[in-house]
C-alpha cells in the first residue's frame, strides 16, 4: 500500500504541470490558434519565478513565496505569449513558425540573462514548499494518504485550474464564444463576436497557464533551474491531443503520462516491476507512442477544433 501511495504522489508531481500546461494549450487551440510555443513559455515562466525565489529566499520562504512566484510565472507567460498572439492573430503569420521561434528564444534568453546576472547559468533555489501533512484532510483514509501528505500547494492549484477551466469553457458566454472561434470563426464573426479579441484571450490564457506550469514542473523535481523543462511543453501538446481537447479527457491523459513518467523514475524500487526488467527508456517512450496510436485511431473523426492553425482573415469567406 505504501508503494501505491508513493507512486501516486510521484505521479502527481509529474502530472500536475502537464495538466496545467495542456489546459493552457486547450484554451489557445479551442480559440483557433495552435500554440506549440508552450515549451518556450514554460521555460520563461520558470525562469523569472525561480529567479524571484532565488533573490528573495533570504527573507521569504514557504507557500507565501511560492504563491507570489506563481503570479510572476503567470505574468511572464502572458507577456511572452503576447508575441505569439501578435504574430498569429494580428499579422496572420504561420503559427507553427512563430511557436518554433519562441521555443528557440526562451532557453537561449534564460541562459544569456542568468550568465549576465550571476555568471553561472543554473539558478539555485531552496525548496521550502513541501507540505508534509495537511491538517485534518490527511486523516481521511486512502485519499488523505494519497493527496494530502508529502504534497505541494501546486497540486491543489492544478486541480482548481482544471475545475475553473471546465466551467469557463462550458458554462460561460466567453467559453461558448471561444469554442465558436475555434470551430468556425467566420460564423462567429457574423454573429458579432470579435474573433481577434477572443483569440487574444485564448493565447494569453495559455501563456499564463504554461508559465505557471513551468514553475510547477521545476519546483518539486529539482533544486536548480537550468533553462530547460525537459520537453514537458511538447509532452503537454501530446496530452492535449491525447485528451481530445476536452478538460476531463485531458485529466486522464495527464494522469496516464504522469504515471508512466513516475514508473520510469521509480520502477527500480518496485520489486515486481524490477523483476520484469523493462528499461526506464521503455516507460519514457510509451506516452509518445500511445499518442501516435490514439491519433491514428481517432483521425477519421478528429476532435480537433476545425479552424485551429488557420489564420483568421475577415476577407476570406
Amino acid at each position: 500500500m505504501d508503494l501505491l501511495y508513493f507512486l501516486i504522489q510521484q505521479t502527481l508531481l509529474f502530472m500536475i504541470p502537464l495538466l496545467i500546461v495542456a489546459l493552457g494549450g486547450m484554451f489557445s487551440e479551442r480559440a483557433g490558434v495552435v500554440n506549440i510555443a508552450l515549451e518556450g513559455i514554460m521555460v520563461m515562466g520558470a525562469f523569472t519565478s525561480i529567479f524571484f525565489i532565488n533573490l528573495t529566499q533570504g527573507f521569504m520562504s514557504g507557500n507565501g513565496q511560492l504563491l507570489i512566484a506563481i503570479l510572476i510565472a503567470a505574468a511572464t507567460g502572458i507577456v511572452f505569449s503576447l508575441f505569439h498572439a501578435i504574430a498569429s492573430v494580428n499579422l496572420k503569420a504561420d503559427q507553427t513558425i512563430s511557436g518554433t521561434a519562441l521555443n528557440m528564444f526562451a532557453p537561449a534568453f534564460a541562459i544569456f540573462i542568468a550568465r549576465i546576472i550571476q555568471t553561472v547559468q543554473q539558478i539555485e533555489f531552496k525548496n521550502t514548499f513541501r507540505i508534509v501533512e495537511v491538517p485534518i484532510l490527511s486523516k481521511i483514509p486512502i485519499i488523505g494518504e494519497m493527496l494530502f501528505k508529502n504534497s505541494y500547494i501546486t497540486t491543489y492549484i492544478g486541480i482548481l485550474i482544471l475545475i475553473l477551466s471546465s466551467l469557463v469553457l462550458y458554462k460561460t458566454k466567453f467559453g461558448l464564444r471561444l469554442r465558436a472561434c475555434g470551430e468556425n470563426p467566420h460564423a462567429a464573426n457574423t454573429a458579432g463576436i470579435k474573433v481577434e479579441l477572443i483569440q487574444y484571450a485564448g493565447v494569453l490564457i495559455s501563456g499564463a497557464l504554461a508559465g505557471i506550469g513551468g514553475l510547477v514542473f521545476v519546483v518539486p523535481t529539482s533544486t536548480n533551474f537550468n533553462a530547460t523543462v525537459s520537453g514537458y511543453g511538447f509532452l503537454a501538446v501530446a496530452v492535449l491531443i491525447f485528451g481530445q481537447w476536452k478538460p476531463k479527457y485531458i485529466l486522464f491523459a495527464s494522469f496516464f503520462f504522469g504515471f508512466m513518467k513516475a514508473l520510469s523514475n521509480s520502477y527500480a524500487s518496485i520489486p515486481f516491476l524490477f523483476a520484469l526488467n523493462i528499461q526506464s527508456n521503455i516507460y519514457k517512450m510509451i506516452p509518445y507512442i500511445a499518442t501516435i496510436l490514439v491519433l491514428i485511431f481517432t483521425s477519421k473523426k478528429s476532435a480537433a477544433p476545425r479552424a485551429s492553425g488557420i489564420p483568421f482573415d475577415k476577407m476570406k469567406r
Binding site: A87, L91, I97, S98, T100, A101, L102, F105, A108, F112
Partner: peptide, 24 residues
Amino acid sequence: FHFSKEIIDIIVAVIIYFSAFALI
C-alpha cells in the same frame, strides 16, 4: 567578453520570428 554564445540563438530566434511575417 562577458557575453555567452546563446546570444546567437537569440538572434536566430528573432530572425525566424520575423521571417514568419516575412511571408507578409
